[in-house]
């Protein structure tokens, strides 16, 4: 690989990293490098400096907090999540998505937070974040701020991060009730980006849905939050009519384009099908029989 010329710094503290970003125009954070490096290889990106955050301690932890929230540090790799034995108990949506992101090689380097920062409409993690109502904690010269993910992602490959801000962690808020959820992705081959992907989050109070979120991958010019579909679920016990309504609403929320992965109509159909399949896993036994 022969990228354009660039400077490389590898600070060992957040403060140092932030001051490097402040002091140098066109400097970019390097996390797992699984999106940035390929773009530099193709010379689609030609940053003047890379600020490698991999040597900053304390960013590689993820886990449930005492307040019930779940935090994922900026250097937590896809593979860390995939291999975690406890993640599934707390975050079934993320646990279901982890083995479906990219391929095993990319997963050992790529980071959860880096993926959200990359804001690729085909990124799987942003859909999970959207479904789970997550936020990103950003740190800059003036301290930290917490940004809800739908605000954080400003468009395709765009976030509201300032040039000298670093996303230090992702936060998933505590669930009201029992957390359920899942992720389904249609891909042509392992390591392919989604033809279509659906992230589902349910917070159940008994057999009733207290809160729901649905994030859609690869079916629009940005990650889609299917809010109407999610709203349709709230208060229901996931009866068939509700499931159908949610599936249709989710499909209606998409604006896919026809490409070599599939036609727009097909992608819409897959979204509806996957919403149904995900919800079927959580339908009470009676509803399934009916």
């Amino acid at each position: 690989m022969f990228p354009s010329r660039f400077d490389y710094k590898s600070p060992t503290s957040l403060e140092e990293a932030i001051s490097l970003l402040s002091a140098h125009e066109d400097a970019k954070v390097l996390a797992g490098g699984q999106s940035l490096i390929p773009m530099m290889k193709l010379r689609f990106a030609a940053p003047a400096m890379l600020v490698d955050i991999n040597n900053i301690p304390g960013l590689d932890q993820h886990g449930a907090q005492s307040d019930g929230s779940y935090r994922i540090g900026a250097l937590v790799r896809h593979a860390d999540l995939e291999k975690s034995k406890t993640l599934g108990d707390h975050q079934p949506t993320i646990a279901a998505a982890a083995p479906l992101v990219a391929d095993p090689i990319v997963r050992t380097r790529g980071t959860f937070v880096g993926s959200v920062c990359h804001a690729d409409p085909q990124g799987d993690w942003a859909s999970c974040m959207v479904a789970l109502d997550g936020s990103i904690v950003a740190q800059g010269p003036n301290g930290r701020r917490t940004i809800a993910v739908d605000e954080f992602v400003a468009g395709p490959f765009q976030t509201v991060l300032a040039a000298d801000e670093i996303a230090v962690e992702a936060i998933i808020p505590p669930a009201s009730g029992t957390r359920k959820g899942g992720y389904l992705k249609l891909e042509r081959r392992v390591g392919d980006f989604a033809t279509a992907g659906v992230a589902l989050s349910l917070e159940m109070s008994g057999s009733t849905v207290a809160k729901a979120g649905i994030g859609l991958t690869g079916v629009g010019s940005a990650t889609i939050s299917a809010t109407e579909a999610a709203a349709a679920l709230v208060g229901s016990s996931l009866d068939d009519a509700t499931v159908d309504a949610a599936a249709e609403a989710a499909a209606a929320a998409t604006s896919p384009r026809s490409d070599h992965r599939g036609s727009a109509d097909y992608k819409r159909h897959i979204v509806a099908t996957f919403v149904r399949r995900l919800l079927a896993q959580h339908q009470p036994a009676e509803a399934k029989v009916a």
């Binding site: 249609l186 042509r188 033809t195 992965r261 599939g262 036609s263 097909y266 992608k267 159909h269």
Partner: peptide
């Protein structure tokens, strides 16, 4: 035989 062609 991509899935969308088979489905179509």
């Amino acid at each position: 035989l991509l899935p969308d062609r088979v489905y179509g």
